[in-house]
Amino acid sequence: MRALLLIPLLSLVLPQGPRELWREGERARAIQALNAKLAEDERPELRRRLIDWCFTVHKYSAALEAAEGLGDEGDPHRGRALYFLGRYEEALALLDEGDGEAVLMRVEALRALGRDWGEWIEPAAELLGEGDRRVALLRARALLEGGDHAAAVEAFEGALKRAPLEAEALFGLGRALVLSGERTRGLEVLERHRALTPLLDALDFAERGLDLAPLHGPNHAALGDAWRELVPFDGGSYARAEAAYQAALSRMKGKARVPVHLRRARLIADHGDGLMAAAFSLDAALKEGEDPQLLVRAADYFSEAGDAGLALLRLERALALRPGDRAIRERIERVRRGR
């Protein structure tokens, strides 16, 4: 019994291991701890983990340094680090020609240096497969830059089928259409691209926020919002939004979960199974505890779906929680009048 008591006490005073720190989001400290561990016990698997962690937190110089300890085996990692540091010439000498992701970096490095990259399309296709959206994009891009606009139209359309949210494919298609003389259709596509772009920017912003603080629930919810807005462009975004909201809920407690439930309900209402399903999702959330916001929103959905009875029941529960709330009273009146 005494020994059992000591274990939790010891855990308070003993330094945490790198993995624990990493899991808790203490990434800088985790890397520091792993470096210290490596100084005492140099093992390739630990070094590979260190390199991986450095890439994850954008410590490319540190990744480069860490990769030195792997000898020749570290070359591909050094190539990647040099690529992310913008040292393209050096990266080209080290990037792994047998790795699809590294071949894509090679293409990008060659492009940045203003050199021909076309010869790497086939290797990329072999390594990543013809079904890979990035390969399709490379082919389309090459056609557009080569001036074969008609073929580029076809290629970009193919790329869009694989990846409806690919900005380059949409923009490239619009450009290729304009340049091939189909100005009206091209402008329509470019308008669609214009509408999509800020949504992709918002998604990028949300992903960066999550990257900085992966354990912060509201960051997951923000990602859910970004995906939700993209559903009209790509139905597959629905599942991503739902997953992000669930991830947010799993990291949040109590009243902090309410806004996430509301946003998830909006996803369901706007793009999922409709108003009733959204209302029932809020009913499910109410099992965590009565909340006037959830009740009012559920009532709104029921009302909009034509079920005034269910709406009134929720509004009355909301009014019980906030007896002086004029907005709730007005809603009740409105629903009663509309019955």
Partner: peptide, 14 residues
């Protein structure tokens, strides 16, 4: 902007 292609870069990105 749309016709000219000067709103975004070649990748279609702002």
């Amino acid at each position: 902007t749309l016709l000219s292609g000067t709103g975004v870069n070649a990748r279609g990105l702002t």
